[in-house]
Design a protein around this nucleic acid. Structure first.
Lengths: 228, 228
DNA sequence: ATCAACAATATTGTATACATTTTTGTAGTC
DNA sequence: GACTACAAAAATGTATACAATATTGTTGAT
């Protein structure tokens, strides 16, 4: 999907992948209940494997497990939201530095091809594909940067970003505009390290600016504070 | 242990914690077999929970699961090793920047107290405690930097560093010298951001320099190449 | 009608048994 | 004696049943 290397992964990782995708595409809302039996039937796997997947997702911060209550899609608070965007800027800046150093001329078309997909999905109004491809662009950058570690970290950050934007978006949100991605490709092509990094940081700031991180939004489960 | 916040964690996370610690302290060698039933008996939990913990550790890259074969402590290759140290430098540099900006005067004694523990463990020759405290110092820095995300990333990086040093150390390795930690504290106290960052980078470089990352070491399971 | 106590239901958590697969040990043949 | 084929053992993977717990619904008293 995003990176062709790890097409062969374990069965647990595949369940995680599908739930992760649903969260990243905002088909699963923050706070949504994740019943084990239901997931087992949907994915046609044993309940034990669903529990393994949920444990992994919990350690990734995407899911909250309450003992004897069940699993829910996580609802990050404002502090965590700011943290995620702060770290994401740092990580993606490092990705850009590495990428400009390492990318070869024959890899640039990969970025352009991805961008074309983004534009196409955007034009035909496929929001699900738009969100997936938009995050996929950033992951592709990390993949081409050649650090599987940065890739893994960014993977986490992007999925959490999706959760955060789902909760705190103040109005309409076009997750990542393809235009800024295009500008990014130009700087990468010309090996402009500082320029590429700056555009990336601006790009992420734009996304963050569309959020309303001023007030804490009460979580689904802890709705005491929502009503008093 | 390292950070007082998450003292109350789930039962799966507790199993992960104990296995992680054993790996970080090098009581579990790379490639070591991890039998489910054995772990279940040791930790006095169900085998299902052990499987959950192993799934989490696999997603963290600390454990390799081979279908129908079992779980083994991971054996990172040289590429991954270089990647880990590269990213770790980036991450810990960011930690230092944040830390110098955010740390308060009354938090510096925490660092000194930790350093005192390191020195004491070092003097009495307690290698297990030395390794734990040495990594704990870096985690404490991340905690005081106030980003739970950076903390989590560094947690991963440190445990993988332990695996890597266990495999690729060329000779004697004093994981992290307390002296360099002391120098670090000085720079932090004087709010010398660039100085603190440089010392940290040098510090990590010293650790990496003690490794022999020139040749690939054959893994335990794939020992074909080790013998032909 | 409201509230408390209690029963019913649903879901999670765990133990058990069993199928599948891999590894190891053994017997048999050349 | 070495190699192959087969059998036994061990460990993983999974399905099932059951226990523990939380939620929901109901009944009954004031």
């Amino acid at each position: 999907m995003y990176h062709s290397k790890e097409t062969v992964i374990g069965p647990t990782a595949e369940i995680c992948e599908r739930i992760w995708l649903s969260i990243a595409e905002k088909r699963l809302r923050p706070g949504a209940r994740l019943k084990e039996e239901q997931l087992a039937e949907i994915f046609d796997v044993s309940r034990a494997r669903v529990r393994q997947a949920l444990a992994v997702l919990e350690s990734d911060g995407l899911v909250t497990i309450v003992p004897n209550r069940g699993a829910f899609v996580a609802e990050p608070g404002v502090d965590e939201a700011r943290d995620v965007f702060h770290v994401r800027k740092q990580i993606e800046a490092r990705v850009m530095e590495r990428l400009v150093d390492r990318i070869t001329d024959d890899q640039v078309p990969q970025l352009e091809a991805h961008l074309a997909q983004e534009r196409e999905a955007d034009q035909r109004g496929d929001t699900s594909a738009t969100i997936r491809l938009s995050g996929g662009f950033h992951l592709l950058l990390a993949e081409l940067a050649g650090s599987s570690f940065l890739f893994g970290i960014l993977r986490d950050l992007i999925s959490r970003s999706s959760l955060i934007t789902a909760i705190y978006r103040s109005q309409h949100l076009h997750n990542c505009g393809p235009d800024e991605h295009a500008a990014l490709i130009e700087r990468i092509r010309s090996r402009d390290k500082t320029g590429a990094t700056r555009i990336m940081l601006d790009h992420l700031q734009h996304v963050e600016d569309e959020l309303d991180l001023t007030e804490e939004i009460p979580t689904s489960r802890d709705l005491r504070h929502a009503l008093v």
